[in-house]
């Protein structure tokens, strides 16, 4: 049972809420209260646009416990438009091939159950291929 941890991280997990440095405008994700760029205190919340591109990716066939029902799935390092890199699952791929540089957008999805099917459902950010206008 990791309910306190999931609860504490919900804002950043559901909505990609990080921080912006009030001194140098550096965008920070995940939030860490200290700017990795200038070293000053940075506690101002900042909601990322969720837009980015695939920097690198790999497909998981032997998934860790809790993620096995979704295997195989693809994990990517996504470079957000605002700068930071985040590691996240890709989703809604359908039969679309993944390429480095592919534009992606954040969606909030089910990550796993906390424990088994009786546990709370953990939701968080994933990225999917950017939906193009019809």
């Amino acid at each position: 049972m990791e309910i306190p941890r999931h609860w504490r991280l919900k804002q950043q997990r559901y909505g990609l809420v990080g921080e912006v440095c009030p001194h140098c405008d550096y965008k920070i994700f995940p939030p860490r209260d200290v700017c990795p760029n200038c070293g000053d205190e940075a506690k101002t919340l900042y909601t990322f646009s969720g837009k980015g591109e695939v920097f690198s990716f790999t497909t998981i066939y032997e998934a860790p416990t809790g993620f096995d029902h979704a295997a195989p799935y693809t994990v990517a390092i996504v470079k957000l438009d605002e700068g930071p890199m985040v590691t996240a699952q890709l989703t809604d791929l359908g039969d679309q091939p993944i390429e480095i540089g592919m534009p992606v957008e954040m969606v909030t999805r089910k990550m796993r159950n906390d424990g088994d099917e009786r546990g709370v459902i953990v939701y968080g950010y994933k990225f999917r291929p950017a939906v193009v206008a019809a």
């Binding site: 559901y14 029902h69 979704a70 989703t91 909030t108 999805r109 089910k110 990550m111 459902i121």
Partner: peptide, 11 residues
């Protein structure tokens, strides 16, 4: 998809 439900779709 496998990771979707009424909560994620409503969001």
């Amino acid at each position: 998809g496998l990771d979707e439900d009424v909560i994620t779709m409503s969001i």
